[in-house]
Amino acid sequence: MSALVASNIHKAFGDHEVLKGVSLSVERGEVVTLIGASGSGKSTFLRCLNLLEMPQQGELAIGSHTFVFGRGMRPTGDAQLALLRRSVGMVFQHFNLFPHMSVLANVTEGPVQVKGMARAEANTLGRDLLAKVGLADKADAFPSRLSGGQKQRVAIARALAMKPEMMLFDEPTSALDPELVGEVLSVIRNLAAEGMTMVLVTHEMSFAADVSTRVGFMNDGIMAEIGTPEETIRQPRSERLKAFLSRFHETH
């Protein structure tokens, strides 16, 4: 059964058309990685999947939530959006931890405030998740005391605390010092092994090849190629993808 079906998603910022009809369906337990040059629309597309960006046209089905976008359609309400986002976790490039809350409070904020979970139960859940990302000893620290890699692992725990059916990662290692990338990727790798459905935008090509069930190449607002890592990364068909990959190998 599909965890996510996005069809013909269009998005423009002013006159600039960022997504020109992108479709993607993701099966349960799948890990789909989106690659492509900056400006290709991959992050915007990812942000359309939990409706942080509102598509102007297209359809989106996630779990039991379905949305149809287009002229004349009623805009989606705040309550409905909140309901969707409870079941879709998101991890941002710049972590976006809440700086005025302790690490544990960051993780428990969602369960307590959104789901109404009791404080004690949330704390237990929070500590378990922090242990899972290797930060059990940082529960009472504040985000400003953490390294980038630690911050991103807290952000992952915060998203997992909502027990999402799916996780979205928007360049989770792009803001990290190179030596901190590994610890974050290993947490994501463990999640994949547990069968979490995931969509990732990343520039970590070997990680993508390794962890993904499919890799999609976005170019100029369309899904130019999509297939197994073997197909997309090792045997690119289009000239654009070949060029992107060779440019990539030169600089990395």
């Binding site: 705040d78 309550a79 959006l81 879709v88 998101m90 941002f92 809440f98 959104v114 998203a159």
Partner: peptide, 24 residues
């Protein structure tokens, strides 16, 4: 990004404002 992080965990506008944005 603070608004977005709140939205991403399913919080609604008023709550994000009170719990996340206003304290900062």
């Amino acid at each position: 990004g603070q608004w977005e992080a709140g939205r991403a965990i399913g919080m609604r506008r008023g709550k994000i404002f009170r719990r996340i944005v206003l304290p900062q």
